[in-house]
Design a protein around this nucleic acid. Structure first.
Lengths: 336, 336
DNA sequence: TTGTAAGCGTTATCAC
DNA sequence: GTGATAACGCTTACAA
């Protein structure tokens, strides 16, 4: 048990290196940081001692005394989903340009634990948080926080709002003008409630005196291709005269196009398909996807600016001043 | 100039809060961290003082005295590219499961600067580094580092090698068996040299006594759909009798399929198409893509395990012991 | 060229 | 319930 080989597994510190090299710790610093004013031979000796001891400077000790880039925590659901990947890419870019670094957590894998592990590692947080307001306060406390795409009801904390309302109106108008008679929406939700997007769709349809057909699929994960194909089948069974389908997002839309095409239904001749989000994915499929294009760059810039302002105390943590709205626009391509 | 309002913009520290609340700094700690043994009224007073001063504990000071999760730096080229997004997702997952957090940098946006900014913020690095060996030493110094997908020549630092050799052989075999006569490869490279993948293709074709047709496109960014379409056109112009195309990766393959389909060439009847990497994207297109499937999960697990071992001094920083090879496998779908 | 001293902001220990 | 003191590991003065 008292094996002399098993001494303190504590990581070597600057003092250990100094002792081993027979110099002061200041000399070690000079050697490690390529600073001037050190004898080449001494430097070599120190570097060797450091290597032998597996010494690496502690980033905390160092961060305490030098100015280092602040860190933004970004919470996405799943990088495998193009939506989150595109958002993350833009946020990374926006943050980097402002001299911030980015720590990413995926809630799909880590869940709430992933989100809370960010706290204490970062200086501010932006992203998608599934918790309700009281839990948010509990987890994030005084952490500067900007929420992404929360329903406009909970407007306490700073939020980036995706306002699809006008784009949805434009899409419906576009479909009706081109003679589509029976428009259905394939909705998706992690809760059992309709999404905000579907609410907007239904409201607009109703206000035009049309039947607001909404098929809600409720799963515990983001929609994938196969699930979307099933939903498409179900919708056509429910409403066989459907000649246009508006989808919760682009991934669903692509699944729908695939299902229809393979069933021998022509898109767009027999059924038009509209997606939402404007992922690059929409250009991959045939026919290319008509979609409600979200400006990811704008979202990222807005969010990063906002969260930095809050972190620097130049903007309040909550209140209407810290709510930003982004408005997607209808982009017409071949699927309608 | 001497505006009295512009006092030290220095962030408030725990001592400032303590002074303002009229308590010791230890009491502030107790209040901030929800620790027991503090009067409820005192706690409120402290919390209020903290809020007024915009006080937030320094993560460095805290990291110095508490055990916090170590951080892995991940360098990807571009999260907008599904390849890197899928890899990042797996690495995030693998690292999180091992109690590490992940800091991501995109070299497409930040360049080398992005990579070097990681140093000093993290405890180890994994990812794609474009630099040559000597520059790597310069930038990363003693940082534990695992490189991703470097050509097997530079085997100094720890590396995850993607060995497409056998899968490429299998793909060629598969195409020939099905009667394809003239197989061409669309290669891609950021340097002016053929990729390692193309080398393998050419070698295998030559060893079978076939003409090794390789069209190299050289750009300064990852291939995108449009560029791939152009390359496809060029290849058919060069070798009109081509009846099978092997692509540098799935993105190129998808661009090729799109180009062929819109030109009225049937895939796979007239021309078969094979991709590499095995992205989820391959299931989106019609026909679904035959590809050389890389196991991203395995790559991530291998890489994270390896880099952690190195960081903990249980594996050497360089040498053949720290080279891991991953072998993709041919997945046949409808495009061949 | 090298060493000494001070301080960065926090939490843990132990006394009150 | 509260406060003093001692670390934590490092860098930046400044002195030798």
């Amino acid at each position: 048990m008292a094996d002399p080989e098993f001494v303190a597994p504590r990581r070597a510190g600057i003092l250990d290196v100094a002792a081993r090299a027979g110099v002061s710790r200041q000399t070690v610093t000079r050697a490690m940081n390529d600073m001037p004013g050190i004898n080449a031979a001494t430097k070599q000796r120190v570097l060797e001692a450091a290597r032998e001891l597996h010494y690496r400077p502690s980033r905390f000790g160092r961060g305490l005394v030098t100015k280092v880039a602040p860190t933004l925590g970004l919470i996405v659901v799943d990088l495998t989903n193009s939506f989150w990947a595109e958002l993350a890419s833009r946020v990374l870019d926006a943050a980097t340009r402002r001299g911030w670094t980015v720590l990413i957590a995926e809630s799909a894998h880590g869940g709430v634990a992933a989100a809370s592990s960010l706290v204490g590692q970062v200086d501010a947080v932006f992203g998608h948080v599934e918790l309700d307001d009281s839990h948010i306060e509990e987890v994030f406390g005084s952490m500067p926080l900007v929420l992404f795409d929360r329903s406009p009801e909970s407007q306490s904390r700073a939020t980036i709002i995706l306002d699809f309302g006008s784009a949805i109106q434009a899409a419906i108008e576009h479909l009706l003008v081109r003679g589509r008679q029976h428009i259905a929406m394939l909705d998706w939700s992690l809760s059992s409630r309709r999404s905000w997007r579907a609410e907007q769709f239904a409201a607009e349809m109703t206000s035009r005196g049309r039947d607001p057909r909404v098929l809600l699929t409720h799963t515990d994960a983001d929609p994938d291709l196969d699930a979307a194909r099933g939903a498409a089948e179900e919708a056509l069974h429910l409403w066989p005269d459907t000649d246009a389908i508006v989808c919760f997002n682009d991934v669903v839309a692509i699944g729908v196009i695939k299902q229809l095409t393979e069933s021998g239904v022509d898109v767009p001749d027999q059924i038009a398909v509209v997606g939402m989000d404007g992922l690059a994915l929409g250009l991959v499929v045939t026919p290319e996807l008509t979609t409600l294009q979200l400006d990811f760059q704008a979202v990222a810039d807005l969010a990063v600016d906002l969260v930095i302002q809050i972190a620097e105390g130049q903007a309040p943590v909550r209140g209407p001043e810290v709510h930003r709205s982004v408005t997607p626009e209808l982009t017409v391509r071949r699927s309608t």
